[in-house]
Write a protein that binds this DNA or RNA. Sequence first.
DNA 1: TGTGAAAATCATAGACG
DNA 2: CGTCTATGATTTTCACA
Lengths: 172, 172
Amino acid sequence: MFQNAQVPEQSFMNRKGSEMSVRIDALDRKILEQLQRDASQSLDDIAKQVGSSKTPVWNRIRKMREAGIIGQQTVLLDAEALGFEACFFVLIRTSEHEADWQAKFLKALRDRPEVQEAHRLAGDIDYILKVRVKNARAYDAFYQALISEVRVHNVTALLSMEEIKSTVALPL
Amino acid sequence: MFQNAQVPEQSFMNRKGSEMSVRIDALDRKILEQLQRDASQSLDDIAKQVGSSKTPVWNRIRKMREAGIIGQQTVLLDAEALGFEACFFVLIRTSEHEADWQAKFLKALRDRPEVQEAHRLAGDIDYILKVRVKNARAYDAFYQALISEVRVHNVTALLSMEEIKSTVALPL
DNA sequence: TGTGAAAATCATAGACG
DNA sequence: CGTCTATGATTTTCACA
């Protein structure tokens, strides 16, 4: 049993940057691990697994949801089974760094559902994208559409042959 | 209403490669979209949203689960709020391509929880990793550990400055 | 804060048209 | 196959220690 074992270890602001801060203790972390592993478990099961009981676990989950620590609850689909057989990592260099170019570029990425990830990078290469499409032709269509919308200096596409590992879990 | 609107569009084998094939129709696709968007919805809500009713939706979900199309149910956590402030994409070139080197390398990646993604690539660069860590020092520790375990020819780390977009949803 | 119970909702199964 | 009904689980709330 874990009666009141809070060792304050970390605090942070929520998304709105408000004063509200939430501390994450060892029990919270165990709960998060369980939720990451299987979000369909019942509260009772989670409580058992983390050595606590229903109500405290429920209150902590609610708090972490409100604080934005716990976000979307989703389901992972088998991409290949659904016909998404190509995955590209796209390295982008640009010479344009004005604000309105960047805004246009970001909007283009956010609007395209085949872009699963987009990061602005430090250094030589400016952006990296992860693009999941049905096949190479669909990638080409994406690529042509992108470069017709925004000017980019240099694009390198890396084609994934095999997904060795894929997880959304953080190593808490 | 969607009475029996099955337009067969796709079939595939399940994970064990058995004969069992499942066809995905427009209704299945809508259900998957809803589950991706919010897996905590009740069956009734999903049924309403896709224009069907409880039992058919439930049967389809069960079938797709059994077929492995629907996998893990999980929760997305706010990485920054939990202190994971650094994200690297790591490009790896190697000169070694023997089977046992590869097995060792794969095991090393699968054993390290900071590796969220690992792909074997076509072309010039052999592998790409996505590594999520608390800070640059933690990345260095990861890097040193990795190169001491397996020999690699060339490693380039790309540091993410900003996560512009991140989704696990497939564009069904 | 944790416990236990009450109330409301939901998932799951099965009979029927 | 879809509709409807039933019944156990589960979530969510709340009074009390």
